[in-house]
Simulated scan of single mutants.
Amino acid sequence: MLSAYQLIRSPADHGKFVSLHLCEAPGAFVSATHHYIQSKLTGTRWDWVASSLNPHFEGNGTKDMITEDILINETGHHWYFGPDNSGDVRLRENIEGIWEMLSRRGTVMLVTADGCSGDTLELEEHQDIDHQLQFCEAVTAMGSLSEGGHFVLKMSNLCDHASVCLVYLLSSFFKQTSICKPTMSDSSGCETYLV
């Protein structure tokens, strides 16, 4: 997606590229972005912030989050878990905390959001949670992105009312929107991305 949609261009902000990665654990978007910048945009200074449910916060249930914390442990200064340390992007104070922190980082040109269950077996059970989370990810992205920036949102279902409304809302803010299914995504799964 980074290459196909040209989501990262040579930075205009003194060679610095800033990105935000929501619901990022275990770190696929950060890893892909790192690889793309290292191989295509050498000399670019990349500053990134990631947020996810904090695997070290006792208030988060283990079944609700990814507990793989290798990237978090190795790159701790890039992770933001909000004023309450939970990392729950559905909470207003955590969204506002992300906005405040990014306002000091520079021009944010990419936001990725990877939070939804994506599990076809439990889709009905998680659908309401996914809709709330996707809406909060969109709100966080809209308050973080600079003009001309890009947003990638993982979606699990595009045929229900809430998803169609979210696609419509985001389409009204961006010059172009696309729905894609990456070639590496499980063809039997319902995972799609709104770009």
Rank of each mutant, 00 (worst) to 15 (best):
G118I: 08
L153M: 09
D186F: 00
V152N: 05
G148E: 13
G43M: 08
S19C: 06
S52T: 13
W79T: 08
S31H: 08
M101Q: 11
L22R: 02
D128M: 07
G82R: 05
T183G: 02
T75V: 03
T140N: 07
I72N: 01
Y5W: 14
C180G: 00
C159W: 07
S172C: 11
M1N: 09
W48T: 06
E137T: 05
S146I: 10
H77M: 09
L91P: 00
L145W: 06
D119L: 11
T33C: 08
Q132V: 13
C159Q: 12
S188H: 03
L133S: 10
Q132E: 14
G59C: 04
Q38C: 09
Y168M: 11
I95R: 15
F57M: 10
M155L: 15
T120F: 09
E96I: 03
C23H: 01
H35R: 13
I98T: 03
N94S: 07
D69Q: 09
G43I: 10
A50I: 04
G148D: 14
H78A: 14
K181G: 02
L169C: 08
L2R: 07
S86E: 13
V18Y: 02
V152G: 04
I95M: 14
Y80W: 12
E93V: 07
M1P: 00
N73M: 13
W79K: 04
